[in-house]
């Protein structure tokens, strides 16, 4: 099967510092791929390159959908429109907006009413909004948050904020979902639930997932393949078993501590 996302020799430097150096990765449709590495290895930088927040200093980043797209040339909102959604390491919800509005906002790219309809609340607006609302509540239901739809996102407990961020990303109806440390700050029970949820949404929404995670139980438990970054370079790739026994990986992690 052809890959969905390819990074070919991708580099990014910030004022002489190589955050990412000549990285090659491939993500195939339907896979859950893990991206691991010590702090400062360049994992989030790679996410920022894929989503267009940064422009690569070198190499090629391509999304292979119906047509092939050069991600280096697209802006973040265009990339989101093409079907790449993400969550953030440090949770970036729209804090003052309600839980429901956070999700409804993400359907924005799929809206079919005009500014005119919005301003005059035409029947087309009313129909479209109530349909959207229904879909958003349905999605929140999957995450057990439908009963919290009217409270501001900032008032959710931490674990639920992380889950809401995933729900919001799903509302974009992406092909590729990037999760940046989804289990950070969760207790073991929450983490176990999260793993089940990720597996479930992957099948339900036909997703491909690339995830950064420090919690090895998550990475080893749900990823089919893993890439390991250290100091901006790819030092290993393979199945969870390969990675577990890879001496370079062990060294990178032990050297960290």
């Amino acid at each position: 099967m052809p890959p969905l996302l390819t990074a070919n020799d991708v580099s990014k430097n910030f004022g002489g510092l190589n955050a990412i150096a000549n990285v090659n990765i491939e993500v195939h449709p339907g896979e859950i791929v893990g991206l691991i590495g010590p702090n400062g290895a360049g994992k989030t930088t790679l996410f920022n390159l894929i989503t267009g927040v940064y422009i690569p200093s070198g190499g090629q980043l391509k999304l292979h959908g119906e047509v092939e797209v050069d991600l280096a040339k697209a802006s973040p909102h265009e990339i989101a429109g093409m079907g790449i959604a993400r969550t953030f390491q440090n949770i970036r919800l729209f804090k003052e907006m309600t839980v429901l509005d956070n999700v409804m906002l993400a359907y924005h790219v799929h809206i079919d009413y005009s500014l005119w309809d919005a301003i005059f609340h035409t029947p087309s607006y009313i129909k479209s909004e109530s349909e959207l609302r229904r879909k958003a509540i349905e999605l929140l239901d999957i995450f057990d948050m439908a009963n919290k739809k009217d409270i501001p996102a900032k008032n959710l407990p931490y674990g639920q904020q992380r889950r809401l961020e995933i729900a919001r990303a799903l509302a974009l109806q992406p092909k590729l979902l990037l999760l940046d440390e989804p289990a950070a700050g969760m207790n073991p029970q929450e983490t176990a639930d999260l793993m089940k949820l990720i597996m479930w949404i992957k099948d339900r929404f036909n997703l491909t997932i690339l995830l950064i995670e420090h919690d090895m139980s998550v990475v080893m438990g749900i990823c089919q393949r893993i890439y390991v970054l250290d100091y901006g370079k790819l030092i290993a790739e393979g199945t969870p078993e390969d990675i577990k026994s890879n001496p370079q990986v062990i060294k990178a992690y032990l050297g960290e501590d």
Partner: peptide, 12 residues
């Protein structure tokens, strides 16, 4: 609320 998150949700 958060322009970077908004962009990542497809908002121009």
């Amino acid at each position: 609320e958060d322009d970077i998150a908004a962009e990542s949700m497809g908002i121009d």
